[in-house]
Write a protein that binds this DNA or RNA. Structure first.
Lengths: 147, 147
DNA sequence: GCGATCCATTGGGAATTCCAACGATCTCGA
DNA sequence: TCGAGATCGTTGGAATTCCCAATGGATCGC
């Protein structure tokens, strides 16, 4: 007898790597989001602020390219970060079309706290694994991602 | 010297397991979605149809619990599946609040085709890994997920 | 110079994910 | 028995994310 029709159809879907990775990713996102919520940041805000910190005075179009975010959303996210005093938009003297976006000292401090919080959330996510297994998972995910 | 301030803040975020899993999951979702698009199904439709097939005549509230979907969304997804002739809503004679949702023969056939397509998409996702590595990734993801 | 390109911003639309409420129905205890 | 509380399917609405287009200003190549 063939295993009748779709009697295990959902179980099959839920055993796929794409589904498993999705669940793990969803839990990870949720844990990190919860961790940094106390800093007043959501995940995209955190990513933009980190990108601004890493790439120094940077144009918004560069942030769009580095992050793969929509240009419109970057505008709104930077509005929020600027109002919160974490980032700063200034005109680029070399190219008056561009904004030179920088992190404020308060932004740097927030980013340092968020880095710790995000690390802790990820430790919680990988708690079921040993350190060696966590490294292995990272390596496999990296290989799949970079392919 | 400490690595000055946030000079690698984005790189740090992008090296977190939660971020990596998110990227891999996004690619996996995209590949599977593309694969089954020809069947007229999106990912949530596929999941609901599979759950209906697996749990036989089933109430929508049970689907909500099995899938973790929102009840409203299940209503809309089932509307679509019913219009496409893949699933059927009938009143449950035992409990007039409930619908007894079943999969149609056409739904079973669609599900069989989607299973193959989803498998192929996942093979593509894990193409960079050997079979042993793929198994290991699955095992690690499963352990993280089930914790 | 001047056309093509780039920049930040604004606008809108589609899809996904949540939360809240409703009328109809069932369950269980007083 | 009957009434309070819970459950069911449904509808409405909000927030977020993603995609595409258009604008006015500025720069670059020819």
């Amino acid at each position: 007898m063939t295993p009748t029709e779709g009697s295990r159809a959902l179980a099959h879907i839920q055993s796929l790597p794409s589904w498993l990775a999705g669940r793990v990713a969803a839990r990870g996102r949720s844990l990190v989001a919860e961790a940094i919520a106390g800093e007043g940041l959501k995940l995209p805000h955190h990513a933009v602020l980190a990108a601004v910190a890493e790439y120094g005075p940077v144009a918004q179009a560069d942030l769009v390219r580095k992050l793969g975010f929509d240009a419109k959303d970057v505008v709104l996210l930077l509005n929020h970060l600027e109002e919160a005093g974490l980032a700063l938009r200034e005109p680029d003297p070399q190219d008056r079309r561009k904004n030179a976006v920088t992190v404020t000292p308060a932004g740097v401090r927030t980013l340092e706290r968020c880095a710790k919080l995000a690390d802790r959330a990820n430790s919680e996510l990988l708690a079921p694994l040993s350190a060696a297994e966590a490294r292995q998972l990272m390596e496999l995910l990296t290989r799949v991602h970079e392919a």
